[in-house]
Design a protein around this nucleic acid. Structure first.
Length: 429
RNA sequence: GUGAGCGUAGCUCAGUUGGUUAGAGCACCAGGUUGUGGCCCUGGGGGUCGUGGGUUCAAUUCCCAUCGCUCACCCCA
């Protein structure tokens, strides 16, 4: 048997309504905040990701789906979508058409990691990017949008974490401070963190290993070394969130794994999923557009994992979606014996014709394609949650009538076939 | 890439201290006086016990390998 590739999942009809519910909420929310949808290709030239996310990051160095196409171009399935959006922004000169672009996207992303709860190789993210303003109001707005969506899904177990990484000079300066602090403690760090000491010293804060954590507890914090602009921007974010009643905590150790972040970074984590608890993460990236060859343009954005969000909804039982139902199930009455084949064929056409008349009236309807007994058809109607069944056939039909049954209360009544208006209004009630 | 756990019906799982035809519940199909559902009752279909090899008179059960799934680490959404 051919199976789906490791880390990919079928979204079956039985769970697709949850996805559609989420997608509808997303589109409504982004519309409310006046963000426009952008759809960029699912693969890009490999260099785009290497340059934006950072060569040394885990995503680029070991998680990308990269291959060569027939013209030997190195292609990568997008591991995230900020790079693609920024590429499009530059290539299509979106910045020349308006000074601020507020964009959102929904789509599949790909990373080759070991799957686990809340982590797949093909997964779905939605996200937003605002390009063209350094205003910290937008930083806070990103958090607000994400929070608005999660709250509207009924999620409770949420924590908003924010931090500021400052401008590059500040960060470089701080790295030296941190290096000095760790110099004599270096040997006590875990092997992994000793490696980070060389490659990306800030990430040592992320370590879950106890020895690292005890050492880092007394480490100097970047947030205390911020430049005045970063500091005051961060204050605005805090004040905004407070003003709009979004609870948050400042987490000075929140260092995100993508190289392009500057100033504000944030994450919303849920206690209702497994250990991959970040539902959403983002931050400001004021230098990225220029690094990718565009005119210097500040930006801020976030991305959220849809599987993780739906997992949280499931675990908190926060979504109560109405069951699918249909308006009418048409039942072909009469024998299915051999000598009646002609009659049945005629009735089948009557049923099909009635179905198309109903559908023209926007009534969701269904009938039997398997030549099953009346009883089986009734069971089917029940399974589909039909509001009504209409019996087609028998003596009533010979008399030009249809027997209409309300499945909720069992009431039946005969209606003349010519009186379609009456039939229609009964079924539409 | 590393570690742990698990692979028996479409699904959730029993079971076999190695021994003739491998079970349940749910789901599916049919029937319950031939034209009426949900509940209930009866019956039915469906399994190379993940795959390959080994030990044995005999393996679904023991051993090895392999593949897959799950969770965790790393990292991230």
């Amino acid at each position: 048997m051919i199976k789906a590739i490791t880390g990919t999942k079928d979204i079956l009809p039985s769970d697709v309504s949850r996805w559609q519910y989420l997608e509808k909420l997303l589109r409504e929310t982004f519309q409310l905040f006046n963000y426009k949808e952008i759809r960029t290709p699912i693969f890009e030239e490999t260099g785009l990701f290497a340059r934006s996310i950072g060569e040394e990051t885990d995503i680029v160095s070991k998680e990308m789906y990269t291959f060569k196409d027939r013209s030997e171009t190195s292609i990568t399935l997008r591991p995230e979508n900020t790079a693609g959006v920024v590429r499009s922004f530059i290539e299509q000169s979106l910045g020349a058409q308006q000074s601020l672009n507020k964009l959102y996207y929904i789509g599949s992303m790909f990373r080759q990691e070991r799957p686990q709860a809340g982590r797949l190789r093909q997964f779905h993210q939605f996200g937003a990017e605002a390009l063209g303003s350094t205003s910290p109001l937008l930083d806070a707005e990103m958090i607000q949008i994400a929070f608005h969506i999660l709250k509207n899904l009924g999620l409770k177990n949420l924590v908003v974490k924010i931090n500021s990484l400052g401008i590059p000079e500040v960060r470089e300066n701080y790295k030296n401070v941190l290096r000095d602090f760790l110099m004599d403690k270096k040997d006590k760090l875990s092997e992994e963190s000793r490696k980070r000491f060389e490659t990306n010293i800030l990430r040592i804060f992320d370590s879950k290993i106890e020895v690292d954590q005890t050492i880092m507890k007394d480490a100097p914090l970047l947030i205390d070394y911020l430049d005045t602009q970063s500091k005051s921007d961060f204050d605005v974010v805090e004040n905004y969130l407070t003003r709009v009643s979004i609870p948050f905590e400042v987490d000075p150790t929140l260092v995100r794994g993508l190289d392009y972040y500057t100033k504000t970074t944030f994450e919303i984590v849920s206690g209702s999923v497994g250990s991959q608890s970040a539902l959403c993460g983002g931050g400001r990236y004021d230098l990225l557009v220029e690094e990718l060859g565009g005119k210097a343009t500040p930006g801020v954005g976030f991305a959220a994992g849809m599987e993780r969000i739906l997992l949280a909804c499931e675990n908190e039982k926060s979504l109560n979606l109405p069951a699918d139902l249909i308006d009418v199930y048409l039942i072909r009455v009469d024998s299915n014996s051999e000598e009646q084949l002609d009659v049945n064929l005629k009735l089948d056409l009557e049923v099909a014709n009635l179905a198309s008349m109903f559908r023209r009236e926007n009534l969701i309807c269904e009938y039997d394609y398997l030549n099953r007994s009346v009883k089986a058809q009734m069971r089917e109607a029940n399974k589909y949650n039909a509001k009504f069944v209409v019996f087609v056939g028998g003596d009533e039909f010979k008399n030009g009538e249809l027997n209409v049954k309300n499945l909720a209360n069992g009431d039946q009544q005969l209606i003349k076939i010519e009186d379609f208006e009456k039939l229609k209004s009964l079924l539409k009630n």
